[in-house]
């Protein structure tokens, strides 16, 4: 599984990354979380706002910090 958090580094993006990491830990799935800060790469996903969460190429959430329970739901 491939999990990416897209965000240039604003406070919300950092918060989103933290939430996703916590969710991964809580779900016990063995996977890496990658933080994508490069604007060009973020733009390729066609998202309109950051932070955004991408799991296996699927954009799951855009422009807001996801809830931990939701992230766990996406991973499972």
């Amino acid at each position: 599984m491939e999990i990416k958090v897209l965000g240039a580094g604003c406070p919300k993006c950092k918060h989103a990354e933290k939430v996703v990491r916590e969710a991964v830990e809580a779900s016990g799935v063995d996977t890496q979380v990658e933080k994508v800060t490069d604007m060009m790469e973020i733009a390729r996903y066609g998202v309109f706002g950051t932070p955004a969460v991408v799991i296996d190429g699927d954009v799951k959430c855009v422009g807001k910090v996801p809830k931990k329970e939701d992230v766990i739901g996406w991973i499972k």
């Binding site: 965000g7 240039a8 580094g9 919300k12 604007m39 973020i42 733009a43 998202v47 706002g49």
Partner: peptide, 14 residues
């Protein structure tokens, strides 16, 4: 429209 300035670039591109 909800928008924060750190989203300016993705929004501009979109």
């Amino acid at each position: 429209t909800p928008f924060c300035s750190c989203s300016a670039v993705p929004l501009f591109i979109g």
